[in-house]
Amino acid sequence: MRATIGRMIEASGLTKHYGRTVAVDNLSFTVSEGRVTGFLGPNGAGKSTTMRMILGLDRPTSGDVRIDGEHYRDLRQPLRTVGALLDAKWVHPNRSARAHLSWLATSNKLPGTAVDEVLDLVGLTSVARKNAGGFSLGMSQRLGIAAALLGDPKVLLFDEPVNGLDPEGILWIRRFMHRLAEEGRTVFVSSHLLSEMSQTAQDLVVIGRGKLIYQGTVGDFIAHATENSVLVRSPELGRLAEVLSAEGAKLSQDGDGLQVSGMDSAEVGELAAAARITLHELSNHAGSLEQAFIQLTGGTVEYQAATEEGPTA
């Protein structure tokens, strides 16, 4: 359906072992051009490792990841293609913000004016000559973003950019992401907070324990993962099941009742009444976004297939 849109980041079978621990396990996903893709997973799920492999910092044990069809290590001037902020503290504390950006710019033959531009863009011009070691987390984060934007790249990677920031900082980052997306850039941003992703991302790649759990749009994920279910009990359970599934509901047996998802209790009640089926119980089970996320990532099996086919009775 999005075949016309280019695949900007493409991981296939990406695997990383650290000694005996498997950090990333046969992970395949794509990030589409010109969209904001959230990279979601609990802490320790392998998000940062994946990002380091995308950037050629860590070597995959097996598998492969490409940016715009190329390995990161083969990019001649990578900052012009990919900007990344993995850790805001990757800065020498005794080096000024401007000097930090200057050496980065020089390394990719970027004009000196680029440094001033990005400093201005993130609002650090007034402290550009101060040592980065004295920066607050919010300021460090801005410096990191400035570094990422230095080469005016079409792809941007951010690892947990709002972590530890105050509300003002979070808002600033969020606005910034939107702005980058409006400019048509591809943004791949990780977080362990689903709520954060639902505010910034259009697409989602969800992983747990190094494995892919879901890939698709945020809307679909929320629809699937947070479907309210309805519990019905009835002496004519068999007939009720027929009626409901004919209307597209997804059903699963729950003791002597049925868990119905895909429609709300009112619809279920109306369908039952129309078919003259007696109900003994009709109750709503609302799932929260975060609960669903924990459920999805906690068990960590191939949930992708399950959501697409839907749980069957």
């Binding site: 950037l55 910092l57 990578p78 503290k89 990757w90 800065v91 504390p93 980065l104 390394s107 570094a147």
Partner: peptide
């Protein structure tokens, strides 16, 4: 060693993968 200490080595290899 300070590049490793402050992880700027990663920023370096990010800018210049060679």
């Amino acid at each position: 060693t300070t590049e490793y200490r402050f992880s700027t080595i990663r920023a370096t290899f990010q800018a210049v993968p060679n």
